[in-house]
Structures are given as C-alpha cells and as structure tokens.
Computed example of a mutant assay.
Amino acid sequence: MVKLIGAVLILFAGTMIGFHQASRFAARPRQIRQLIQALQRLETEIGYGYTPLPEAVTSSAAHLPEPVAGLLQSVSRLLAEGEREGKTFRECWEEALTMHWPGTAMKNAEQSALIRLGSALGISDRDDQVKHLRLAVQQLKAEEDAARDDQSRYEKMCKSLGVLVAALVVILIV
C-alpha cells in the first residue's frame, strides 16, 4: 500500500514538473507580445502624445497585465525615487529589469534588447526615441516568432517527458 501511494506521488510530481515547464514555453510568447504592446503604447505616448518619458511609462503600465505592468511600474517608481538621488533613466530601467526578469518566462535575448533600448531612451529627442522603440519592437517580434516555434516544438514534449520520466522512476523503484 505504501509503495502504491509513493508511486502515485512520484507520477503526480513528475507530471506537474513537466506541465510547469510546458507552461513556461507557453508563457514566453505571450509575455513577449505584452512587452511589444507596452513598447508600442510607449511609442504612441512619446511620439504622438508628446508625453514626457516618466509619465509615458506610468501611463503605459496602467493598461497591461503582469509581469510587464510590474516591470514598468518599477521603472516609474525608481524614476520618481531616482530624481532625488540623481539616477538616470538607464539606471532605473536596468535596475527594474534586473529585479523583475527572474519572474518572467523570457530569455536573455529579450533582456538584451530591452537593455539596449533603455540606454537610448531619455537621452535623445522624441523622433530618435521613437526610432529606438520601433527597433526594439522589431527585435522582440523576431524573438516572439522564435518563442512560438519553441512552444510548438517543446511544449507537448515537456508534458510527455514529465509523465514518462516519473513512470520510469516508479518502475525502477518498484
């Protein structure tokens, strides 16, 4: 009886690990899409609304789901705190990315595109900032396509692999 309960628990744990990994493959393209929407909203605020960068970041964060909203809200909060300490936009942007990145399903390619974007925002005129935002959006769209390919390739495999590895462990134990 104890072996049966242990086998069921091992199967359950292996299955859940597989499903968790598969959910990360599914979350990555969705989060990249949300990030693209955030940058497009930021581009609209800066380019057409003539909104100052701190206000544009705050406004963009209000209409997005987590984890992208949390990232932009942190940037906004760090900018407000950084004014007293003399922090630049780039420093606040990178600090917020470092804080929030582990909570996302995104990879280093998306992070490096955002770091490059952060170093260009806030130091040039409006048109140049819009160009940098569009470039970042194009880079993220390419990463989104790659993430969708990874999702279609690996999501189902992770689910199956979790169940099969757990079954193998149960067979080896019993």
Rank of each mutant, 00 (worst) to 15 (best):
L71D: 10
Q151L: 12
S59W: 01
L71F: 15
V68Q: 01
R77W: 12
S59I: 04
E110L: 00
V68E: 07
K141F: 01
D128H: 08
A105V: 05
H100N: 12
S160T: 14
A147E: 07
S119N: 09
D149P: 01
V75R: 02
E110Y: 07
C92H: 10
V75M: 14
M99L: 13
E110C: 12
M99C: 03
K159A: 13
H63Y: 13
P65N: 13
R77I: 12
M157W: 13
M157V: 15
W93V: 01
P65D: 07
A80N: 11
E95Q: 14
V57R: 01
M99S: 08
L121I: 00
L79F: 03
E110D: 09
E55H: 05
T88L: 05
E155G: 06
T98C: 04
A80Y: 08
R84Y: 15
R84V: 15
I115K: 02
M106F: 06
M106S: 03
Y154Q: 12
D145F: 06
R77G: 12
E81Q: 15
S124V: 02
R77K: 15
L121N: 00
H100C: 07
P67V: 03
R84S: 15
G86F: 08
Q129Y: 00
A113E: 02
A136C: 10
A109H: 13
M106T: 06
L64R: 12
G86L: 07
H100V: 06
S119V: 00
C92E: 10
T104V: 03
A113L: 10
L121P: 02
E144H: 12
L133H: 02
Y154W: 15
Q139L: 11
E144A: 14
R84L: 15
T104K: 00
M99F: 08
D145C: 00
P102E: 14
T104R: 00
K107G: 13
Q111S: 01
D128V: 07
K156I: 10
A136G: 03
K159L: 10
L64C: 14
M99I: 10
L135M: 11
E143M: 12
R84C: 07
A105L: 04
S152E: 15
M106V: 03
